[in-house]
């Protein structure tokens, strides 16, 4: 007898299938990432005397460190995540792959584990290049370009990995839902951009309640937001430090001279300025919280995809 019987289909089998299926995509993406990373290293070395010895790439290409990972996550979402199941549906190979002795969910687990592991490694590579980039710039500019909550914020390995896994899961879920590769790619691209920007704009400043400060009117204006902190908000406040929004009906804008304006504002209850910010010490915490957000989003999208391939209502 030539029949081979095994007790179970193991991870080795699932990973082999995933590797053979995505070999080309994995090699292409690895090559591309390696090229970009190498390019960053090379360009960082080419300082520009006209720019006071700063790396040419930073100014000439308007290249920010976070651009690489925004692009990387989007590319993972579009070219790895979206086609993962959508292409199976288009070619009807889902009927082949899911009709063997492994349920679709285990097949999917093999695919996600392999692509997730490779994406994690590539994200780490991207992080290394970014870290090198900001380190070099900080050194050359003697700290002038050190803006931790913008340039530096995303340069953390766990955060990069979180973005990449989120991209993979988002593309995958889109593919499972729409079952066609091109629309899934579009949804993945737009979805990734929207979520990343939304988190930057609306979530990041409020990951912890901002520090609130108040300064009563004084002869000298005092900057309340410390260096390197993330500015969240500022404005007029009453004696208790509670925000007061300026009303046009007060008519203070018409008063001539700053003294007149000040009196007008005081007459309307404005006692001074408040400021809200996130101090530098919270940077590490914020990076971990944001990583958590993206990992949870990725897990939710994976669960959605898992439910979608499990004994479908249509195939």
């Amino acid at each position: 007898m030539t029949t081979v019987v095994k007790p179970r289909v193991g991870w080795g089998d699932l990973l082999w299938v995933a590797w053979r299926t995505h070999r080309t995509a994995i090699l292409a993406m690895t090559g591309l990432t390696a090229a970009v990373v190498a390019g960053v290293f090379v360009l960082m070395g080419m300082t520009d005397t006209e720019l006071g010895g700063l790396p040419a790439i930073y100014f000439r290409l308007f290249w920010q460190p976070q651009d690489t990972n925004l692009l990387f996550g989007a590319v993972i979402a579009v070219f790895w995540g979206a086609p993962l199941v959508a292409r199976e549906h288009e070619a009807r190979t889902n009927l082949l792959a899911w009709g063997q002795d492994v349920p679709a969910t285990r097949w999917l687990a093999g695919q996600v584990v392999l692509l997730g592991a490779v994406a994690t490694c590539l994200a780490a590579m991207v992080w290394m290049s970014e870290q090198y980039m900001v380190d070099t710039m900080r050194e050359l500019s003697e700290g002038r370009t050190f803006t931790p909550f913008t340039t530096w914020y995303e340069v953390a390995p766990h955060l990069q990995i979180g973005y990449a896994l989120f991209g993979l899961a988002l593309g995958l879920a889109a593919g499972v839902l729409v079952r066609r590769t091109l629309p899934a790619m579009g949804i993945a691209l737009v979805g990734f951009g929207v979520v990343r920007v939304a988190v930057i704009e609306w979530a990041r400043p409020y990951l912890r309640p901002p520090v609130h400060t108040f300064e009563a009117w004084n002869a000298d204006y005092k900057n309340q937001v410390p260096d390197y902190a993330m500015y969240v908000g500022s404005g007029y406040a009453d004696a208790n430090g509670v925000r007061i929004d300026y009303q046009g009906s007060w008519g203070c804008g018409d008063r001539v001279g700053s003294a007149g304006q000040l009196d007008c504002l005081k007459a309307n209850g404005v006692a001074g300025h408040f400021a809200e910010f996130q101090p530098l010490e919270r940077l590490g915490l914020f990076q971990w919280i944001e990583t958590g957000i993206f990992v949870v989003l990725a897990a939710a999208l994976l669960a959605l995809a898992w439910a979608g391939v499990k004994r479908a209502r249509r195939v």
Partner: peptide
């Protein structure tokens, strides 16, 4: 299934290998 799906970038040999990997019994 009626589409007789196969992975286009696999060779027939690799398709058999896929069958061997994903099944508990394989001849």
């Amino acid at each position: 299934s009626q589409e007789k799906p196969v992975y286009k970038h696999f060779t027939p040999k690799e398709m058999l290998r896929l069958g061997a990997r994903l099944n508990l019994v394989w001849d």
